[in-house]
Amino acid sequence: MRLALDLFTILCVSAGGVFFLAATIGMLRFPDTLTRLHALTKADNLGLGLVVLGLLPRMEGVAEALKLVGIWLLALLAAATVAQLVARAALRETAGQPGGPPR
């Protein structure tokens, strides 16, 4: 049981790490703001989510585990909102330019 839980933690946290890595590469390599935002949200949603999931069995009690999940939910909320606001600002900036949305 102990071994299975350890394996679960290692798998989930590693998978989370992969998403963080992919998101970082996307941030650096993608051509414009909207695609970069798309990459960034993967780190917050899946990356942090998988890390939290992997750490859950290592928590001492239900309250501790709920705190971790709460942190993830707050990060999700902040990431989603900021992504919306940045995307709106980016759209406004490129409006009317070639390749941008209509003004």
């Binding site: 707050l74 909320l77 909102t81 919306q84 606001l85 709106r88």
Partner: peptide
């Protein structure tokens, strides 16, 4: 909008 929504959701927390 998103900001007004966050402004209502986050303050209690």
């Amino acid at each position: 909008g998103t900001l007004a929504w966050l402004g209502r959701l986050l303050p209690p927390i």
